[in-house]
Design a protein around this nucleic acid. Structure first.
Lengths: 136, 136
DNA sequence: CTTTGTGCAAACGATTTGCAGGATG
DNA sequence: CATCCTGCAAATCGTTTGCACAAAG
C-alpha cells in the first residue's frame, strides 16, 4: 500500500496525520507478524529517533478505536497488534512464539444449539497451537 | 468434591499439602467462573487471614505445573484460573466480562488441509464473544 | 531433621497518565 | 489559532523474586 493510500485510510477514519502515526500504521501494514510496541518502536527508531514509547501506545490505541488495527492477546503478557482486521484465526508456535494468521474457513461456525439458552454470540475466534515448520 | 478427595488429588500429583494450598484448590473447584488471583485471595481472607498474594501465585503455579488447573488469558491483561482441565471453549460477555465454559463439541475440528503445509497443530481452543442472558 | 512452603517487601516489566511544549488542520 | 499530538518522567498494576522464618513429611 502506498503513502497516499495509507494517509487516505487514516483520514477517512478522522485521524489527524502526523509522521509518528503514519509510520506506526505503515509499519504494521508492512509486517505479517504481530509485533509488540517494543518491536514497532525499534523499527521506527532504527535510523533516527522517530517516536517514543508513549506515542506508539497512544497511536495504536487511536488506530484500534477507529478499527484500523486489532489488538491480539496471546500466551505472553504482552499486547500485540495486527493491521489485518478481516476475520481470521491465529496459529502460535509453542517453540519460537511466532504468530501467524489463518484463514477464517479453517473452522466451521460454532454449533450454537449446543450452548445453554440465553447466550447471544456476536463473534468468535480460535487459536491453534503447535510447531511451525522452522521449529520441527 | 469432599476434603479427602481434594487432598488425595493433590497428593497423587506429588504436591505437599498445606492449608493455603488446599484452600486455593478447593476454592477454584467450587467456582464456575474463572477467578483472578485477587478474587481467590479475597475469598480466602474473607473471615480471617488465610493466605498472601505471593502464596496464591505460587500455589497456582504449582497446581498448573502438575496439570490440576489451567491458566486462562482472555481480553484483559489479567491471569485467570480454571480447575476444569477438560478440553473446552470459552464464552465471554462483553458487557459484564463474565466467562463461562462451553462444551468442546461446539466446534468441529479445524480443517487443517486449509493451513499452509508445515504447521503441526497440537491443540486449539476458541473464544466466543457476546452477551450473556443477564446483560441482554 | 531435611525439605519445601509462607509472607513480607522490594524488584520488575508492561502500560497509563500528567503535563509543558510543539505540530496539525 | 484552537485543537490535539508528542515525549518525557512519574505513577500504576499485575506478577516475580529474595529471604528469613515456619510448617510438612
Amino acid at each position: 500500500m502506498d503513502t497516499v493510500a495509507i494517509t487516505e485510510k487514516m483520514k477517512a477514519k478522522g485521524l489527524r496525520i502526523t509522521p509518528q502515526r503514519f509510520s506506526v500504521y505503515a509499519n504494521l501494514l508492512s509486517r505479517c507478524d504481530h509485533p509488540t510496541v517494543e518491536e514497532i518502536l525499534g523499527d521506527l527508531n532504527q535510523e533516527f529517533s522517530m517516536s517514543s514509547k508513549a506515542t506508539v501506545y497512544s497511536t495504536l490505541s487511536a488506530l484500534k478505536d477507529v478499527g484500523l488495527v486489532r489488538e491480539v492477546l496471546l500466551e505472553d503478557g504482552v499486547s500485540r497488534f495486527d493491521a489485518n482486521v478481516m476475520k481470521h484465526h491465529h496459529f502460535r508456535c509453542r517453540q519460537c512464539g511466532s504468530i501467524e494468521d489463518l484463514a477464517w474457513e479453517v473452522f466451521h461456525p460454532p454449533l450454537t444449539n449446543l450452548l445453554r439458552p440465553g447466550l447471544e454470540v456476536e463473534a468468535y475466534e480460535a487459536t491453534l497451537h503447535g510447531l511451525c515448520d522452522r521449529c520441527q
